[in-house]
């Protein structure tokens, strides 16, 4: 029984070749693909045409929620729950509420970033097919990998393999599901 294919993986020796491969594959019409690199490459983002992440919107919402929570908490305490005259200052002493409001804004925004990022990345992910390629270990050391996934409508084992070989990778391998 042959296992279904996850995709085709090409290995490159330099970051430039990897970026070039991504651009070529996008020009060829492939969309479901990903690149794996041991170091961040700024151009990859453009070469893969990855849409902008929605993360900032979540962080903004989290920050605003923290701001409302901080100011609301202090307003509720000092005006409703426990109105108390401190040195003749007004109950709504908003300047002294600013530090807490600021801290809660930062805290909520920070926690939202963490939680949303983990969720958007699909973590935790205990299994991923690309690790079936034995040489993929070097993706965290010195190897630059590019994978076109079988889900892509233009994917065809024979033609995609020929296309990847035309990019002169050091190796092309089939990735089992």
């Amino acid at each position: 029984m042959t296992k279904p294919l996850y995709g085709l993986m090409a290995e490159f020796e330099t970051a430039d070749e990897l970026v070039h491969a991504c651009e070529a594959a996008h020009a060829e019409g492939y969309r479901k693909m990903d690149a794996y690199s041991p170091l961040p490459i700024e151009e990859l983002h453009h070469a893969l045409h990855i849409p902008d992440t929605p993360l900032p919107k979540f962080v903004l919402a989290g920050g605003l929620a923290g701001m409302v929570a901080g100011m609301g908490l202090l307003q509720w305490i000092s005006n409703i729950a426990y109105p108390y005259n401190v040195g003749g200052r007004p109950l709504n002493s908003w300047p002294s509420f600013i530090p807490i409001t600021f801290e809660l804004t930062v805290l909520f925004a920070g926690l939202t970033t963490l939680v949303t990022l983990v969720m958007l990345c699909g973590l935790p992910m205990p299994y991923h097919p690309v690790f079936n390629v034995p040489r993929f270990k070097s993706a965290s050391r010195d190897g630059f990998f590019f994978c076109i996934e079988a889900e892509d409508p233009r994917f065809d084992l024979q033609r995609t393999k020929e296309f990847l070989n035309s990019l002169r990778p050091s190796d092309v391998s089939e990735v089992e599901q």
Binding site: G87, R89, P95, S96, I98, P99
Partner: peptide, 11 residues
């Protein structure tokens, strides 16, 4: 703001 809040609080 630090200057403002310290002076405002002490009054």
């Amino acid at each position: 703001f630090s200057q403002l809040i310290i002076i405002w609080s002490a009054n």
